[in-house]
Simulated scan of single mutants.
Amino acid sequence: MTQDPYAALGLTRNATADEIKKAYRKIARANHPDLNPDDPAAEARFKDAGRAHDLLKDPEQRRRFDAGEIDATGAEQAPRGYYRDEARRPENPYSQKRPASGGDPFGQGFDADDFFANFARNRASGHGDNFGHAAPSDRPGQDAQYRLAVPFLDAAIGAKTRITMPDGNALEVSIPEGARDGQTLRLRGKGQPGFGAGPPGDAFIVLDVIPNPDFQREGDDIVVSLPISIDEAILGGKVPVNTITGAVNVTVPAGASSGQVLRLKGRGVKGRSGKGDQRVTLRIVSPPKIDDELKHFMESWREDHAYDPRAKKETS
Rank of each mutant, 00 (worst) to 15 (best):
E232T: 10
P240T: 01
L282I: 06
G266W: 00
A254G: 04
L262S: 02
I234S: 09
D214I: 05
P227E: 09
I222M: 12
I234P: 04
K275T: 15
R217M: 09
A233H: 01
K265V: 15
V280H: 06
R217A: 10
P227T: 10
A247G: 13
V261M: 12
P213M: 13
D220Q: 08
R279Y: 13
A254V: 02
N249Q: 14
G259C: 02
G268Q: 07
L262K: 02
R217V: 07
E218Y: 05
V223W: 11
N249D: 15
V269P: 10
D208W: 00
D221Y: 00
P253T: 03
E232V: 07
R267I: 10
V280S: 06
G255A: 13
Q278I: 05
L282H: 07
V223K: 14
G276F: 00
G268C: 06
G255W: 10
A247R: 15
V241W: 10
P213K: 15
R217F: 03
G237N: 11
K275D: 00
D220M: 04
E232L: 06
T251K: 13
K270C: 00
V252R: 13
V239F: 04
T245R: 14
P227K: 06
D220W: 05
I222D: 07
V261P: 11
V280I: 15
V239M: 03
R217T: 04
I244L: 12
